[in-house]
Computed example of a mutant assay.
Amino acid sequence: MRWLILLVVFVLAGCGQPQTYSQESYVFGTRVEVTIYGAPQALAERVTAQVLRDFDVMHHSLHAWEPGTLSRMNGIFALAPAQAAIAPGMIPIIQDATRYSIQSGGLFNPAIGNLIKLWGFQSDHFEAKLPDPALIKQLVAENPKMQDIVVDGIMFHSTNPAVRVDLGGYAKGYALDMAAAYLRSQGIKNALINIGGNIIAIGQHGDRPWRVGIQHPRKPAPIALLDLRDGEAVGTSGDYQRYFELNGQRYCHIIDPRTGWPAQGVQAVTVLISPGPHAGTLSDVASKPIFIAGVAGWQAAAQKMGVDKAMLIDANGKVHMTAAMQQRLNFKVN
């Protein structure tokens, strides 16, 4: 499973400063980096190793199509109204993703896994090929939604056999929140966690904030810099990592549940989320409905998601942003 790598992180260690410990891995189908500042080496090594182990467990558990907890659930959904026992850890995830889906007015809809598969994006390698429009129309008409999933005690089932959950727009953010909570519980005061461009900050890097660069959607360089405050999270959705082109048209992995087709008219959306226990999750989720809503509806979508700091780059490269986001971005990138 490949995930979007959408932000460039700048971690600059100066001479004579307390130690910066950083370790990279490849989890969730993307590059993952944990950077800890000012902690004893042994502690930094121990907690980072645990975070990466936790990420690996989450990756296998939440994978939509490889064998794991979620893929087994999807198999039960297909047999609706058959039911089975649910893994306890999945209950809050399903409930949380359902709440966000309702909040977004259905633009964030993890239940459309069949559509994502039809477009070929449930794969590490996909080809430039359009699905049969009749099949797209059929899957849209089946109207799978998170509200179709019923959890009753330790049992779960779906009232709609078309439901197939794909948490590709949720899992990275959820993992950020879990990792940040764990690091804080272990006494880590300053850290930066980056999962393929979804990033959360703990404390700061010495006497300055953690600084990240927001990737330009059409150039191999950041379009702006952003200083993250303690507990803030940032996430970007774009059309430039998981996509294919056919007859001059770009088709990205962000599917509009209303039409069954990849969203058009937007190159990238970045959101900055205020500190809170679910900041990481919201940074992953909120960018999707804003992207799908497009130039005409992005502000309303951001408001629905409770996001006041958002930036959208349209198909022509024009930058749109909220006033609160404009105050935080530095476009003077050398």
Rank of each mutant, 00 (worst) to 15 (best):
L4N: 14
F10D: 13
V11A: 14
G14V: 11
P18L: 06
S22Q: 14
E24T: 13
F28K: 01
V32Y: 01
G38V: 01
A42R: 11
A44T: 03
A44S: 13
E45F: 04
E45R: 14
A49R: 11
V51P: 07
V51D: 08
F55S: 02
H60D: 11
H60L: 11
L62A: 05
H63I: 09
M73N: 03
N74F: 03
A80P: 00
Q83C: 09
A84F: 09
A85T: 14
I91S: 01
P92M: 08
S101R: 02
S104C: 05
G106F: 07
A111Y: 02
S123W: 12
H125L: 14
P133S: 02
Q138L: 14
M146G: 09
Q147N: 10
Q147E: 15
V150A: 09
V150I: 15
S158G: 06
T159P: 04
R164W: 06
V165E: 04
V165H: 11
L167Y: 10
A171H: 08
Y174G: 09
Y182C: 06
S185G: 06
Q186K: 14
I188V: 15
K189Q: 15
K189E: 15
G196E: 07
G197R: 08
G203S: 07
G203K: 09
P217S: 07
A224P: 08
D230I: 05
G231P: 05
T236F: 00
Y240V: 00
Y240D: 04
Q241K: 03
Q241C: 05
Q249H: 13
Q249K: 15
R250H: 00
I254P: 03
P257V: 03
G260D: 03
G260P: 03
A263T: 08
A268M: 11
A268D: 10
P277Q: 10
P289F: 02
A293P: 08
G294V: 09
W298L: 03
A300P: 01
Q303V: 07
K304E: 10
V307H: 06
L312G: 04
A315F: 10
V319Y: 04
H320R: 01
T322I: 06
M325D: 02
Q326P: 00
N330L: 02
V333E: 06
V333N: 08
